[in-house]
Design a protein around this nucleic acid. Sequence first.
RNA 1: GCACCCUGUUUUGCU
Length: 244
Amino acid sequence: YAGEVVTIRALCMAGKLGAALWLRKKMIQRGLIPDVLSHNYIVNALCKSGELEKADWLLRDMMEMGISPNSATYNSFIKGYCLVNDVDKALFIFSTMVNSGIRPNIFTLNILVHALCKRGLLEDAKKLFHEILDDNDNGTPDLVTSTILMDGCIKSGNMGEALSVWNGMFRNNDLVAYNVLIHGFCLSRDTKLAFVYLCEMLKRGFLPDIFTFNTLVSGLCKEGKFDEASYLHGIMSSSGVAPD
RNA sequence: GCACCCUGUUUUGCU
């Protein structure tokens, strides 16, 4: 049983969903009922690739076998519907989740904040963010929530707002948060400040990755600073990060 | 009890 579950997980990560579904069917035929977790691997993969009808069928089939979806299952659907721009359906799933007594968790909220930001509904996103802040029952906004919001501000051209989100994080940052901030400075054509924060992250022990380098190289090129860009490109190769 | 499944960042082409 454990072997099959591991295989289902591997197949899903490789994008071989047909095979994963086939293996699941074989297990059921042999009387081995995969648990929620195994189903979540497949449901999540289907939702990520936009195959929501199939995911929905799988959910119903799973429930007919007496297995209840958990928050991860619902989160996959909410994100999936947001991805195909069906926010109404996402909100419907959200209320289904709440009505079946499953509390939205920080993942759920992050998915929703992200969806709002992506649609440019920054004010709604900020509102939701502050509602989470005020309502301890819904979990606490975390580093990821702040990063999503910061990225949303940057993408709608509001670097000042992004900086106040950054300051609200009180140095509770990670590599992704630094990458987002550096991207923001590059977009506002301020590579000087981008480098200030690159240095800061290095001092704090965060190692730049391919995202950091691509952001900076592209930012430098857009400002016409090709020498610095190729200098950075060299550092990138020699520090084990493969340029692409 | 813990763990496993679900959330965030770059690379501008095409309509």
